[in-house]
Simulated scan of single mutants.
Amino acid sequence: MSAVLVINSGSSSLKYQLLEMEGETVLANGLIERIGEQAGSVKHSVSAEGDEETFRNEEPVADHSAAFRVMIDAFEQHGPSLAENPPVVVGHRVVHGGKRFFEPTVVTDLVKINIEDLSDLAPLHNPANLDGITAAQKAFPDVPHVAVFDTAFHSTLAPSAYTYAIDAELAEKNRVRRYGFHGTSHKFVSEAAAAFLQRPLGELKTIVLHLGNGASACAVDGGRSKDTSMGLTPLEGLVMGTRSGDLDPAVLIHLHRKAGLGFDELDTLLNRRSGLVGLSGRGDMRDVVEAAESGDDAAALALEVYLHRLKHYVGSYIAVLGGVDAIVFTAGVGENSVAVRGRALAGLERLGIRIDPERNASPERGPRVISTDDSAVAVLVIPTNEELEIARQSLSVI
């Protein structure tokens, strides 16, 4: 069998998935959390014949190397056997590839140096991704390792789309430009939408709305990213669980001068104390919707701000694309929130976008249409699968 091990390494977590690629099925997946803390959490799930059995344990996990030993122990104790399902490649999610990486790349010492050099653009992510790569290479020294970059899909942006209107020399020296993120998800979902609609990918104009705790929109023209809402960092764009999204940059200057906030405080404000949390005190969309429907004014306003920004980007990307064939919702909120999907596109009937309330409210899972039969624009829900996309790309380069 052609098994691929996919690794998503965070600063204090290790998420993994073992896939059998001939049938593109998940053999096992797991999550190791609280790495480096006194009490670590381990979850390992084994899939067989449509059923999944989950094993949990709590034990200290000192670092990422220890996390890989814990992972291997979980495979040995609970299966499936790595000896019987040896990975032919290990695929790694890396958040920031800058301008240097625009396709899946076999990891070499030079690649690792470059990932580290790009850490100033993603200080919370790239160092953790690199720790995972280094630990994985020790655990699987005879297997090729491939880095798949969140930013790579957006390497097709035109200069007019990725350039910020600031001093050009200063921007070039400090690598300031739009990079975009969630590229692995946007690529997978836009291709899955074309397959679902049985339309040639090269002919399709699609807007993908990846709505989770982090959220981004992407205008995809013929399978290529043409515009995206996240920028130099994942902070720009849509309203998110704890992030502000778009903001007048003068707000930061004003808060520094008037409220005395320093750089670290402003960073914390925009990344951890803004978005839905900042407006309503709730970061989970389910809680926000429930509170709004119960008459909570702060939650209602938070939801309206969220939807207004979302609709703003949909309209903008229809203009950027010169029309749209499909709008696709994905990720946690996009796949599960009936209220967000319905209200985000309400009032756009004159643009050929019509939502069917019954289809939208259906508890069905999997790819599905939620627009009416007479809607000129197909509105879809497509579950994202970043692990499968990483596995596909990793396998493609070896």
Rank of each mutant, 00 (worst) to 15 (best):
N174L: 15
G202S: 11
A158T: 14
F140V: 10
A193E: 10
F196I: 04
F149N: 13
S225M: 03
A152L: 04
P144D: 13
K205T: 04
V208D: 03
F196Y: 15
T228S: 11
P200G: 13
G222A: 10
N213D: 08
A193Y: 14
V176G: 06
T151K: 09
Y162N: 11
H145Q: 13
Y162A: 04
A193C: 09
G183L: 05
D150N: 11
L211G: 02
D142H: 11
S160N: 06
P141E: 12
A195D: 14
R178P: 05
A147Y: 04
S225I: 04
A215G: 10
K187H: 10
A136Q: 01
H145R: 10
A147S: 13
I166T: 07
G223Q: 00
A147G: 12
R178N: 04
R178V: 13
E172P: 02
H182I: 05
F188H: 15
D167S: 08
F181H: 04
R178Y: 09
P159L: 12
R199N: 02
G180E: 06
F188M: 02
E191P: 00
G222Q: 04
A136L: 02
A195M: 02
P159G: 03
A139L: 05
P200C: 06
L157T: 07
G202R: 01
T151G: 09
H186D: 12
T163R: 00
E203V: 01
F181E: 08
G180K: 04
I207V: 15
A215L: 08
G222F: 07
A165D: 11
A171G: 12
A147D: 11
A171M: 11
D150I: 13
K226V: 14
P141T: 06
T206F: 08
E191S: 10
F149L: 08
T163A: 01
K138C: 02
G180Q: 03
D142I: 01
L170E: 11
A161Q: 14
L211W: 02
P141R: 10
F181D: 05
H186L: 07
K173R: 14
T151W: 03
A158D: 14
A219R: 08
T156Y: 06
Q198C: 00
H186R: 00
Q198L: 01
